[in-house]
Each structure stands twice: as C-alpha cells, then as structure tokens.
C-alpha cells in the first residue's frame, strides 16, 4: 500500500467542558512512522482516541484510506485496517496469550502475508515461551508486546501506538524499538505517541510536536532534532 493513509484536518476534542485538542492537523503516510511528541498532558493520547472515536471529536477532515471515519463506530474503523495499542495496554488478563491473540484475529484486506501467532512469536520471542500464561501473570513489558501482537493479528495497515516504551524494563526498550522497526519493515504504518523523545527519534521518520492541544511542528524527524530552539521550547531538552 502506498500513499496517504490518515489525513486529519482541524481535529478538536473535549472531555465534558474541558477542551483538550484545539484543531490539530497531521498526516500519516503508508509504510512510515510518525511520532506525536509532547509533554505529559499535551493531548497525545486524546488525539489517538479521537481518531478512533473513543472520545467525542469534531474535525474538518478525518480520513483513513480516503474514507471519512468521523462518527463511524470504533469497530468499523478497526475493520478498515486501523489498529490501536492503548497506553495502558488493556490486555485481557483472564485470557491466555494465545486467547488474547485469537481475540484480535481478523483477516486484513491487504496483499501482505497475514500475521499468525507463529510469526508474532518470532517477532516477540518472549511471548513464545508463555503461550498458555494468563495476562495477569505477565510483566509490563510482556503485556506491552502482547498488546502489540494482538493488534497485529487484525492485519492492520496502520497502528496507533500509544507510549510503547512507558513502564517497561529498560532492557526491553531496545527490543521494543526493534519490534517497531520490524513492523515498519513489514509495511505497517505507525502513528506513535511518545514522551520519550529519544525512543521516538530512534524509530520515527516524521515528527508532530503537540503542545497544550495545538500542533507546534510537523515535519521530518531530522528537522525536529536539528531545531534546538523548538526542542527546548516544547520538551525542554
């Protein structure tokens, strides 16, 4: 798949009376990784949820594969090929690893080879050793990997990946970065929300910098890294 996958123009969202997003515009190209970067509370997670319809949102344009997904039920958006890996992972803790994968299984429309548990266990070798284990007996990092694997079972063209490096053991962060790049190599586009800008810098092609619900920068990751003034202003690094 080539071309524009996700096209967002003037996205706004509120929790009750508190507006969180003030008109964000950004794009996700097929096969690329775009990082949403911003401080805690900037609105990264809300952006991902708004795209999926998990929080009420308005937008001038919200297109996935040229189809408007504004107001479309979440499960239909997922079926179009847009996967979601939430920040808190939301593993089904009563279900085993294999059952979690089964819950995510869905044949995609793409021409790529479909994801199978076997392929995913090669991508995440840790999981292979605990196929029958329940979600509530797994570490944070293992849960994170399972959450990503479960979403891949739906054979998405793009994944909204929320804070994959948060709350996992430092030794696993490198493995996580490699897994993200491996997914990209398989042709999956990723919209990545990250506070850990070093992680984002290591994997992302593009950067979108959010500050208090507004977009401060959209461009190549290398341009963001080179722009010290912007980095200091938005992240303080």
């Amino acid at each position: 798949m080539t071309g524009l996958l996700l096209d967002v123009e003037n996205l706004k969202a509120s929790y009750g009376r508190a507006q969180v997003l003030f008109g964000l515009s950004f794009r996700l190209q097929a096969g690329e990784i775009t990082a949403l970067i911003g401080r805690n509370g900037a609105g990264k997670t809300t952006t991902l949820k708004a795209v999926l319809g998990l929080v009420p949102a308005t937008a001038d344009r919200l297109l996935f594969k040229d189809r408007s997904i504004l107001g479309v039920p979440t499960y239909k958006i997922a079926r179009l090929g847009l996967g979601y890996v939430p920040e808190d992972r939301r593993i089904f803790t009563d279900l085993t690893v294999e059952e979690n994968l089964e819950a995510g299984r869905r044949s995609g429309g793409s021409e790529r080879a479909p994801w199978t548990p076997e392929r995913l266990f090669r991508l995440f070798p840790n999981l292979a050793a605990m196929k029958g284990r329940r979600g509530n007996q797994m570490s944070g990092g293992e849960q994170q990997m399972l959450s990503i694997a479960r979403t891949l079972m739906g054979n998405p063209d793009a994944i909204l990946l929320d804070e994959p490096s948060e709350g996992i053991a430092p030794v696993l962060v490198q493995a996580m970065a490699e897994a993200v790049l491996a997914m990209k190599a398989e042709g999956v586009a990723i919209l990545l929300s990250e506070q850990n800008w070093a992680f984002a810098a290591a994997v992302a092609d593009k950067a979108c910098v959010i500050e208090r619900g507004e977009m401060r920068f959209e461009g190549a990751m290398t341009d963001f890294l080179g722009n010290e003034a912007l980095r200091l202003q938005t992240l303080g690094v």
Binding site: L52, L54, T74, Y75, A78, F92, T93, E99, A103, G154
Partner: peptide
Amino acid sequence: TRFGILIRAATQDRDMVAALGVNQ
C-alpha cells in the same frame, strides 16, 4: 470457541474489544 473468547474478553473490556474490530 472464538465466540467464547470474545465474550470473556468483552466481560473485561468492551471498548478494547471494539478497538480490535469486534461488533459489540
């Protein structure tokens, strides 16, 4: 069965099941 797995998953987290493409 797959139906049973989805029921147990939905018992725990309906929204996540929807985000995986299941028609709740």
